[in-house]
Design a protein around this nucleic acid. Structure first.
Lengths: 76, 76
DNA sequence: CGTGTAAGGAATTCTGACACG
DNA sequence: CGTGTAAGGAATTCTGACACG
């Protein structure tokens, strides 16, 4: 599914990461959650997979700016 | 997907119903969300469909206790 | 750079109840 | 019966910042 329906806490549960890490990946333009009326971030299952992948790459020594290219399109 | 990941507010957004209605359907044993540590209800996309179906049936004149049978197994 | 944390506020969700019909 | 609402509390999420390295 590609629907953005879960809050950051759920993503933490599914990935084992912290809110801080997930928000940071967004800050670095690696993931793009949508916002609910209240301003809360909403993620999709796709985002969850992406977050796991990002964290894995970082563990392998990559840097966030290098991962940006690995996304869908490129540059910008 | 069958994973319970969205909070009640998201279900409201997806179904157009109120929290009250959704909680009531649970009270009547028509849906079974799980609870997060904090006690918040978590629903799956399947639950969302079920909620829509329930509300539709109610509009058609059915009563909650009649819809219970329509679920998976029966009685209990 | 990637992540931890304390800080204060705003939005979310919870339960039990009274209401109408 | 199915749903609305006001009530008070507890848990969630948000942002900007200081910290380490």
């Amino acid at each position: 599914m590609e629907e953005k329906v879960m809050s950051i806490g759920t993503v933490c549960d599914l990935t084992g990461l912290t809110e801080r890490q997930i928000r940071y990946y967004e800050e670095k333009k690696l993931i793009f959650p949508v916002r609910s009326k209240g301003g809360a971030r909403k993620y999709s299952f796709e985002d969850v997979e992406r977050v796991k992948e990002i964290n894995g790459k970082l563990r392998d020594g990559f840097h966030t700016f290098e991962l940006r290219k690995a996304g869908k399109a490129c540059c910008e």
